[in-house]
Design a protein around this nucleic acid. Structure first.
Lengths: 108, 108
DNA sequence: CAATCATATAACCAAACGGGTATGAAATGG
DNA sequence: CCATTTCATACCCGTTTGGTTATATGATTG
């Protein structure tokens, strides 16, 4: 999709429909396309395209089982985004700017 | 911009030029538009528009000083994104799926 | 083998997006 | 008070995006 993995991740998650699909995969585990389509609010081809975008960003992977495609969330793919956030937070920390608030949230 | 704060944040950060502007504000602190334009690789009006988008997502704020507009990053505005990530990580944790990897990164 | 089911792809469309140039508006300075 | 600086806004343009319907492909089942 985008050369930069960060851009690919942010772009993938910036669409509500697509993010909702990813959320479902996080909550419910591996699911076939038909199940994801039910309740997505859009047509099956649209779901397939969203899944392709998420796959392009590495956020999901597919397992073929007969005529079904089982998609699953790939947790590790969010790492570049988390790292970037920590990087930004470090700058604020350095400048004693809004110190702690976000870091506390990240540290639990 | 977008009703959902998460969507607004992800969308704002999904453009490389816009994200670079935000990064500079995180690194360098408060800066006027002219300074941000230098090195942005795009024209001043484009920088102003990107800043407007970031402001719409709450990621930056402005302070007017004479004819200059000093923009600064707003750390706290990333909170919904961090919270969402933690939420997703919790699901993986619950399902003992790819446990730890990302959480370790988030917890330092 | 024919029919059907699950998914992906193609073709298409309207809207949003990221960029540009031109202009407006407000503050500053000679 | 006129010229200049600083920024935002308006307008335009090509591309991307998110959605649709129609169709192709591949696996299953009768």
């Amino acid at each position: 999709m985008a050369a930069d993995p960060r851009t690919a991740i942010f772009k993938s998650l910036s669409d509500p429909t697509r993010r909702a699909i990813f959320e479902r995969l996080c909550r419910e585990g591996e699911r076939p396309v038909a199940v994801l389509t039910a309740g997505a609010g859009v047509s099956q081809p649209v779901v397939s395209k969203h899944l392709a975008v998420l796959k392009g960003a590495g956020l999901v992977s597919v397992r073929q089982a007969g005529r079904q495609s089982w998609y699953r969330a790939e947790p590790g793919a969010l790492a570049p985004m988390v790292d970037w956030t920590r990087e930004m937070a470090a700058f604020w920390d350095d400048r004693l700017d809004a110190l702690g608030t976000l870091l506390n949230r990240m540290d639990q």
